[in-house]
């Protein structure tokens, strides 16, 4: 996967040893013909991995997948407009349907995709249901599948060696606090909250202890993270003194916060709130704080149901 991502970030890992890669435009950028580019890509991948590799390119994901499946090694290019003709010769086992359906197709005497393509859609659908309709579309070269790369998970790690081996929880907590503050200052986490904290402790004996915290509500507050983790640290029974502490933060999401109810404060706080809002409006220009009011709650048009009114007198 990492090798393929050097060529193009849009890589979809389908299953072990099977990936889809979007290579549109790459041959042009390399000033090569499509077939030559494909051969070059295949040779580079084989040389880098030492593994036998079959590579195929086509207009649609299914046509490329089917071409790579039937060819043990080497590179295959299915030219534009020739997908249907190419697929017609392939066995029905290349269809991404259940094994039971493969068997049933054979029982009906349908051994090649060309035979499936010659039938009508309604006949395939009537006999095989949704799978049959999909099989018919694919056999006719109609495939609207897109390559969906897996989003990369951002993980931020920080680690520190303790100045002296520690057996008590206080230095571990202090070290963890410092690590969390350092990690949360990293640019990658700006504007994000986190759901998961993995904490690890390196011991003198070479062992490593780990603990995981998954926050009920995402947070970017180191104090809240430590509050959740601290009881686990204090309960530890260390078989040997600790020499290092590490944290890994992951599960990034958008900023998350608690919205207190602005309309249920006492008169004094309300007046302070009004003044603060007026100050904010004057600094930024225009109303900045709004409250949601019902406008036409009965309307079938969603944008007419609610509106935002500037908070103020």
């Amino acid at each position: 996967m990492d090798l393929l991502r050097l060529y193009r970030p849009a890589v979809e890992a389908v299953s072990p040893g099977h990936a889809h890669l979007d290579i549109r435009g790459l041959a042009e950028m390399a000033h090569m013909e499509d077939e030559a580019y494909l051969r070059d890509l295949q040779e580079s991948a084989v040389n880098a991995t030492g593994l036998p590799l079959s590579l195929a390119a086509a207009e649609t994901v299914f046509a490329a997948h089917a071409a790579a499946t039937v060819r043990a090694q080497g590179a295959v290019l299915v030219h534009e407009g020739q997908a249907r003709a190419f697929l017609s010769r392939l066995p029905v086992e290349v269809l991404p349907v259940s094994p039971v359906m493969h068997q049933r197709l054979r029982l009906f005497g349908l051994e090649r995709l060309g035979q499936v393509a010659e039938l009508t859609l309604s006949a395939m659908q009537a006999q095989f249901g949704r799978e049959g309709a999909r099989a018919w579309e694919l056999a006719n070269g109609r495939d609207d599948a897109r390559i969906v790369p897996k989003p990369e998970e951002v993980r931020i790690s920080e680690e520190v060696d303790l100045p002296a081996p520690a057996a008590l929880s206080e230095p571990l907590i202090a070290g963890t606090r410092a690590l969390l503050q350092r990690a949360l200052e990293r640019g990658e986490l700006k504007g994000h909250s986190l759901r998961r904290l993995d904490w690890r402790l390196g011991l003198e004996s070479g062992e490593q202890l780990t603990r995981r915290c998954v926050f009920r509500e995402p947070t970017d507050d180191p104090a809240r993270m430590l509050f959740a983790l601290q009881p686990k640290i204090e309960r530890l029974q260390l078989p040997a003194a600790a020499v290092s502490v590490g944290v890994t933060l992951s599960g990034l999401c958008s900023e998350y916060g608690h919205q207190a109810n602005l309309w249920q404060v006492g008169p004094r706080r309300y007046k302070e709130l009004l003044e603060a809002v007026e100050q904010l409006n004057a600094r930024v220009g225009g109303p900045q704080v709004f409250r949601i009011v019902e406008v036409q709650g009965w309307s079938r048009i969603p944008e007419r149901q609610l509106g935002m009114v500037a908070f103020g007198p």
């Binding site: 225009g286 109303p287 709004f290 949601i292 969603p302 944008e303 149901q305 609610l306 509106g307 935002m308 009114v309 500037a310 007198p313």
Partner: peptide, 15 residues
């Protein structure tokens, strides 16, 4: 008596 002006009312859930 409230001054009308830009931004005092904003629609919500615009498509």
């Amino acid at each position: 008596g409230t001054a009308a002006g830009d931004g005092r009312f904003r629609p919500l859930n615009e498509p």
